[in-house]
Every structure is written in structure tokens, then in C-alpha cells.
Write a protein that binds this DNA or RNA. Structure first.
Lengths: 221, 221, 221, 221
DNA sequence: AATGAATGAGCCTTCATTCAT
DNA sequence: TATGAATGAAGGCTCATTCAT
């Protein structure tokens, strides 16, 4: 991830040798295991090191402190997620708009579903972590990827393409998270997924007309 | 909130006398203050009691443990939010669909905006809290309120009204949260808000036709 | 009990009115209940007061502090036990020595058995209580009672009657406690009881002869 | 001690390295010191660690909690006591019965006398401790040791040797404890000790005859 | 006199981090 | 370079005792 992390959250050494890399990976996996098994507030450095098969001391040579480990963990996760979504976008270049939307929603949905507990665990580990930089970097990558994809399709309202893009992403990412947190039955989740696609497509299809009226009534109670 | 909370998270005594009530309120406010100022993981019972101007012992007379306090805090918040949104829905009975949507989005958005840091603080305090019951109770109230509102309008696709409802709510709530967490500039937030309204309206306007095609392309990458 | 208790352990007021007496009794009973149900280290003043149906404040008007309550509780128990044993002794005046011994052993044994958990609970409550005065007072009463009883029988070795007495009491009281603490099956307990009686009788029957040899071999390893 | 302790009372790690062993010993000694100086209910983990010259954290690396420490302390004490008494018994194999009895009583008495305050302190520390397993294991070892010793002597009433054994042990252990708790002057204690030996010897000498009469009068008052 | 809410010192326990080996 | 024993600050929670009502 190309985010410039808060100085104090940097990992201590970039793993360059093979041994280091595998050690770091073991630590990451161990952290996830502990997160899943014991929950965020029972994730202790000792426990992670133990499950990773290394000593705490060793762990502290790769990560200057616990926060750095969690930060790196989230970074890795978002990095992989971004890569995955970028691939999805790339593959849909030139397709129809509905296809693109469906690919976005389904891709994100599936990424979250596959290891949904991991996802949830990571969410919780990120609380109180100064990970705005990570989130922003992720957002930027997604913006770029979706932007490139959408621009390869005939867009009706080119004027505010950026606003449309950010709206779409906010809606998709936000809705998926919301659905996951409500723990609805799989069946209902699937149905909602279809509807979200329909909604996004309908949104893109709607011309600029009508916007005025909507705005007129946008006074809230 | 009519949720039946996990037994171990129940508050210890229902404050009935005036003094008790004000004490409990002071504790709630103090907890929010600490949450805002120091963050979730620095919210200690001592600190909360201190800021509330009571002793720890007193606090423990009202809440059997820290978790119960946080649970009650979230409960109170969601309760108020639900009341507020119910009022919004009630006031729009009989209006046009776009009006309803706008009211929903704007109402929720404003509720979150007004004390947005509190919102964020509470989100983080709820991590690792078994608050599913709360979330569900809140969801149920919102479902009922929006259901009653929408049914008072001429709905085109009555067949799957429930699916439409849950989709709308998921999209609105999820998107709002997402936008808040990204901390976008106020201006951009406002623009997205308009777009979300447009999107929901477009969704409701789209007839049942076209659903088949959408579904056909809903294979993910 | 005619022990002069350590000044700080005195009960606050001698209950003279009927109400006071019943309140104090309720508190005593409550204390025993709590002791049985929850164990010594979970015996809190609040819990006792609660079960007694009075407020803590009221309880503190009868007992200046927790220790005083426990002290008084033990005092009452030993008082009753002493009374009971005195009666047993009185009723055996003039009987044969074996009868007296049997009465002593059986009387004590039964007193302990009847409410054996209470006994055990009280033992544990007395730990760290400066109850030497109580123990001594109890011992003195038992000495007097058994002395009077034994002197009403034809004793062979009048010379060291005091030593015999204190030995008998030590053996009986000590053995009973030991058997109880080992929690042996009731059947075995009964058998041991018989043996203890036999042993005491044999002891009393043994003339002064033979004492010299025993003493000769009393070097320990 | 070969007792299988309640699972939750197990010590955390068996000290195998030299350093660990001395640390654990220091903790044990410190615990005894604190017990003696401050009493059971003022024995805090902090205080013990402090006097042992280690940090609390270190202490918790060897004992998962306070109870485990006290359990281990009692275990160690009983272990040593058992070893000592086994030696006493072994050394008297083949001797006369009075010699054996004297050895038992004197051996136990001396063991208790040497560090009588420690003994008392440990008794009190064991209250509210689930140490039945320890007591039983100790009893079993004593049974075996005395059994082997007594069987090496010409026993008159071989029929109920087990009953005789358990009676002897109950009487000896119980009486010693009782005498100690009454805090009698050393002189008197010594005299009682002699008497107890005489009593036990008289008991063993008494033939089976006469038992019937005793039993006949064993109804209690 | 009775009540019981309030107090706060002090307890047990955890865990991130260090550093001698 | 790896190890893991040691540290000790800090947290959650209890409960004897007081005192305003």
C-alpha cells in the first residue's frame, strides 16, 4: 500500500531475506488466528508470538510495538483487497455499465464473504488505530480503478463523473458492510445484493433531468 | 429499547429516584466525554467515574461492570436515534415517494452529523460488545417505521415491498456510515447525500422490467 | 460466655428490648446462612444485612464492625455448645467412668454432627479472629463441668486428676475435629467413635504402674 | 505429594532451572513470612512478591493466582511433614508397640512444635482452599507408613488393624492440633504428650474383651 | 432509629515491553 | 540473532464503613 503511514506505526524492518518474510507471514497468520479465536481485546503480543512459533523478542524485532503489527496487518489486508478489486475492474473494461456495476458489487461482496470472520476481526482490530491513511490509500486506489473502468463505457452524464464514482463506491462499500454486520440470513443477503445492483444501474440510467425536483424537496424534517 | 439484552449486560438497578437518574445521566455523559477525549481503549472505569463526579463504587452500583455501561450507552443512543427517525417517518405519511426518501436520508444524515464524533466514538465502543440484540431491535423499529411510511404512498411494486424496504435501509445506513468514516469534506458529503437520494428514488421508480437482464449479468468476476 | 473479649470486638449495644433481640438473632442466622451458602470470604456485611432483612446501617448499630459480628457469632455458638455439654456432664454425675466417657464423646460428637456444616463454617469464620479469649472461656467451662463429673466417680489416680482431665478433653475435642475434617464416611466415623471411647476408658483404667516405662521410651526419633 | 490437585489450583510451570527453583523457594518463604507477620487476610500478592524480592508479574509466572500459591505452599508443607513422619515410622520397624506409639506422638509433636507459628499460619491459609486432595494424600501416606510399622510388631488384635490404625492417627493428629490451638504452657503440653502416649499404649494393650460392654453404654445423653 | 447510596482504599490480575543470556 | 523471564504500571472490581435523609 502506498500510504505513508504515521511515523510511529512503521514496521521495524523490511523483510528482505526469505526467512524474515516467512516469519512475518507466520506472525500475520497467527495474529489473525488469535483475533478469530480470542477476539481483539484478548490479542496479546505473547499469544501471537506463541502461535506464530517465535518468541516475543523476535516479534519485536519485526514490529516495534503491537500497534505496528495491527497496522501492518490491516495494511496487508487492504492491499490484497485493493489488488483483487483492481483486477475485477480491469477485466470489465469496455463492458456495459450494468455489467460493471454487477462486477463491482459482486466482487466486493464475495471478497467480504469468503473470510467474513476475518473481515470482522480486522475491522475490530482497527478500532483505535490511526488507520485513516490506510483507508484513504485504499479509497484512492478504488477511485482510480473504478474511474478507469467507468470511463471505458459510454457514460451519459460525464459532467459529474467524479461525484457519481464516489457515490457508487460509498453506496457499495457501505451497504456491504451494513449487511454483514446485521448478520442477515444468507438468502436475504443474496436478494439484497441483486437489489443493490439494480439500484446502482437505475441510478446510472437516470438522466440529469429530475435532479432539480429532488433537490427542491431535500429539506429534512 | 425493547431488546432483551444478554443477561450479563443488564444494568444493575433501574434509576427511579431523581437523584439516581441524574447520576446515571452524569455517568453517561462522562463516558461520552472520555470516549471523545481519550478514545475507547483509554476509557477506564476510574476515569469515567471521575469525570462524572462520582466514585467508582457508585458507578458500580448502577452498572455491574464496564461492559454493561457501554452496552447501556449504546442502547440509549440507539433508542434516541430510533425515536427521532420514527418521528421523521411519521411526519411524512402520505407524502410522495421522493419526499419520503429524502426525509429518510436527510433525517439519518443529520442525526449522525449533529454529534458526529459521538457517533464515531460509540461505534468504536461497541466493538467487542455483544450488541447484536441492540442492533436488531433498532433494525426492527426502523423496518416498522419505514414500512408504515412507505405503505402510505402509492407503491409501484408491492410484491416485494419487504425486500425493497430492507434494501433501502441497508443502503441508507451503510452509506451514511461509510461517508462519515471516510471523513470527506462537508461539501462533498452534501453532494453525495443528494446523489443517494436520487439513487434511491431512481431505484423505486424503476419498474419490475429489466430485472431479468440484471440478474442474468450478475455473475461476478 | 464470661470471657472478657478484646475491647474492640465488643458488640455495640446489649440488646435489651424484644425488637433488638430478634433483630440480632436474625442477623446471626443470616450470617450463618451466608457462611454456609457463600463461604467465609464472600460473607459481606451487605449480604448478611440483606438476608437478615435489615439495612447495613442498622446492622452497624448492633455491631461496630464485621469482626465484632463474627466474634459474637462464635461466642454464641460456643456458649450453646458449652451449655449443652454441661448438661451432659451434670446428668452423668455418679455414674460409672465408662458411662461418663461415653457420654462426653457421644455428646460432643453429636453436637458437631447435627449441624456439621455450620460447625465447619464457624471454624473458618474464626480464622484471623482474636478469639483466644472465647476458646479459653469455653475450655474453662468444660474443665469445670468434666471435673465435677469425674470427681463424682471413684477415681483411681486422684493425684493428677487435672492432667487426666485436660488430656481427656484434648483428646476428645481434637479427635472429633480431626475426624470431621477428614470427611470420612459416616460408618467409619461411627466405628472410630467407639474406639475413642474404648481408648479413653482403657486410659482411665490403666493404673499408675507402667507409666515409668512409657516415659523411659518417650524419646522421639 | 501425589495428590491430583483440583485443576485450577495447579502451579503454572514446574521450576526446573536453578534460577526458577530459587525464585519459587523465595516466594514460598516470603509467603510464610507474610503469613506470620501480617496474617492470612493481609497476605496480598503484592506483599508476597515484594518480600520475595521479585515483581508481581514474576510471581504470576509461577502461580496462576493467589489460591494456587497457597495451595502449593500447603502441599510443600504436608509433603515435608509426610516425609519426616515416614522416616520416623521406618526407623521404628520391629520395635515394641509402646516405642512405636511414642515415636509417632513425639515425632508429630516435634514437627509441629519446631515451627509452630508456621503451622498455625498454614492452617489458617488453608481455610477456604479446596485442599481436600492434599489432606487425603497426606492421610494415605500416613496410613501406609504407620500400617507398615505396626504390622512389623506383634499385634494382639489383628482383626481390625485398620480401624485401630485410623483411630490412632485421628487421636494423635487431632490432639496435637487441639493442644497447639489452645496455646497451653509448654510444661503442660509436655505432660499431656506423655499422657497421650500412655493412653494409646493402654488402648493397644486392652484386649478385645470388654468391647461389648463399652458398646452397650455408648448411648449418648 | 432506620435506611441505603456513596465513598475510595486496596486487592488481584494482565500484558506491553525490555534486556541479560 | 533469538530467547523468554522479569518488570511494574495500570485496569477492573469489591466491600467495610459512613452519613445525609
Amino acid at each position: 500500500m502506498d500510504a505513508s503511514p504515521p511515523r510511529h506505526l512503521k514496521a521495524r524492518k523490511t523483510p528482505r531475506q526469505a526467512r524474515s518474510a516467512s516469519t512475518v507471514d507466520a506472525i500475520f497468520e497467527a495474529a489473525i488466528q488469535v483475533l478469530l479465536r480470542d477476539g481483539t481485546h484478548r490479542l496479546t503480543t505473547t499469544r501471537v508470538a506463541e502461535r506464530a512459533g517465535v518468541s516475543v523478542g523476535t516479534m519485536y524485532q519485526y514490529f516495534p510495538h503491537k500497534q505496528a503489527l495491527l497496522y501492518a496487518l490491516n495494511e496487508r489486508y487492504l492491499d490484497r483487497l485493493a489488488e483483487r478489486m483492481e483486477k475485477v475492474c480491469r477485466e470489465r473494461h469496455g463492458n456495459s455499465l450494468p455489467d460493471m456495476i454487477a462486477a463491482l458489487v459482486n466482487g466486493y461482496w464475495e471478497a467480504k464473504t469468503e473470510r467474513s470472520e476475518v473481515t470482522r476481526a480486522l475491522y475490530s482490530s482497527a478500532v483505535e488505530l490511526d488507520n485513516e491513511a490506510l483507508i484513504n490509500a485504499f479509497a484512492r486506489r478504488m477511485d482510480a480503478a473504478t474511474g478507469a473502468m467507468l470511463e471505458s463505457a459510454p457514460m451519459p452524464n460525464r459532467a459529474n463523473i467524479d461525484l457519481v464514482k464516489v457515490t457508487l463506491l460509498s453506496v457499495i462499500f457501505g451497504t456491504v458492510r451494513n449487511v454483514f454486520e446485521r448478520n442477515l440470513p444468507a438468502e436475504e443477503q443474496g436478494a439484497i445484493r441483486e437489489e443493490v445492483i439494480r439500484m446502482c444501474v437505475a441510478y446510472l440510467s437516470s438522466a440529469d433531468d429530475g435532479r432539480m425536483e429532488t433537490r427542491a424537496s431535500s429539506r429534512s424534517a
